[in-house]
Design a protein around this nucleic acid. Sequence first.
RNA 1: UCCUCGAUAGCUCAACGGUAGAGCAUCCGGCUGUUAACCGGAGGGUUGCUGGUUCGAAUCCAGCUCGGGGAGCCA
Length: 463
Amino acid sequence: MDVVLIRDLFRQTDKYINQSIKVGGWVRTVRASKAFGFIELNDGTFFSSLQVVFEESLNNFKDIAKLITGSAIIVEGVLVESPGAKQPFELKAQNIVIEGLSSQDYPLQKKRHSFEFLRTIAHLRPRTNTFSAVFRVRSIAAYAIHKFFQERGFVYVHTPVITGSDAEGAGEMFRVTTLGFDQTPRNEQGKVDFSKDFFGKETNLTVSGQLNVETYCMAFNKVYTFGPTFRAENSNTARHAAEFWMIEPEIAFADLGDNMKLAEEMMKYIISYVMDTAPEEMNFFNSFIDKSLFNRLENVLQSEFGHIAYTDAINELKKSGENFDYPVKWGYDLQTEHERYLSEKIFGKPVFVTDYPKEIKAFYMRMNEDGKTVAAMDLLAPGVGEIIGGSQREERLDYLEKRMDELGLNKDEYQWYLDLRRYGGTRHAGFGLGFERLIMYLTGMTNIRDVISFPRTPKNAEF
RNA sequence: UCCUCGAUAGCUCAACGGUAGAGCAUCCGGCUGUUAACCGGAGGGUUGCUGGUUCGAAUCCAGCUCGGGGAGCCA
């Protein structure tokens, strides 16, 4: 007899009710009395567990009654309607095989654990309700992203994880090297001689696939990357990790407006898909993690995202009369408190802030007519902050070179990037979506460490 | 990196200068429909680490380590 997935028992109950079946899973809890007992069995395929009823007639009844939480078992029996109110059906066991015993020091209990504690046992936490739900939603959301782009003719590009460009400008990078630490070779100037290194030059882990994916955009029209990204920033917040996943679409013959339209459609698509595909998990989040979750997500689905230019946002913030800790001034980047006020108080929904001063944005963003601002856009989400950052790219070679000179960038390093402007360059735009921030937004989880399987943060690379 | 709060049994917490406790978990026993099962009993501690103050420190002080919340950097 094949093992049946508990998911199928719940989704196709008619097919299995009153039938002999076999299931395998991990014990969540055992409640036993003298002559019978109950096991909550979870096999990881479904949010809910299956109640197994077992009786004295089992030849190994005493062993089963003493099963420790976490043990792996295989149960054969008949699926019957349950007299209990809390489950529609239950499995009446005829035979239970212990696959792997747990131990009395198994750290997970059937009561609530703090997320802080569960982080210290990241290898076991996916067996809990919350993390079971988080990581199933994460998987579904990843699929939804691919589905969204593939249905629209986007080509999925694998950009390199190891990069040789040393100035992508998005933050501190992790060095990639095979040079020893004891006898680092030096050149005549006493500097590290990277010509002796594996790649013959200085290399790092990527902080963004954008520059690379732009090259494929100029060949495939609509492309996206979806992969790991690394930042060696000493950031100690609930929203930052040293290793995270990022989605970066790039579209040709498109401007900033097209870019924002794409971002909004994508966000709505992912939310709908996840809500439709993981109703049990989403219900759990709405009930136990964030009681305003459904209201918030429904509101996003039904409303148009807000739009406001940076300059107008500054004026709105000044007008608000709110007493901010940091000054609101044109030319200064918006502080977290300003972003929150915009998205939470003024708009009450996700809002695009556009056309930032060029000084606070990256070199590749397209210069606006005014010569002071660039065609950038950040999507600010209530509760999560900046979830998307993007722009229309500067396709005019002379503008781009001028900007790179102003910032003192080495144009030789970017010849391939500049070539895109020499050989049939066109308007194009794109953005970066922080995948973990999206998961936080979808689930109501408030710490990025709790939406990544094995989080890497300053002073923490366990597991 | 900065500000702030915290670290006591496996977990969640109490004790706040005078013998370190509870609930849950674990172990033993009981119980014929449980579902955070219930009832009885038992074991379980270098109070994060190092030093200091004191007759006496989980408790007061300093440094360190790690963690939470907030900020910067960003996604």
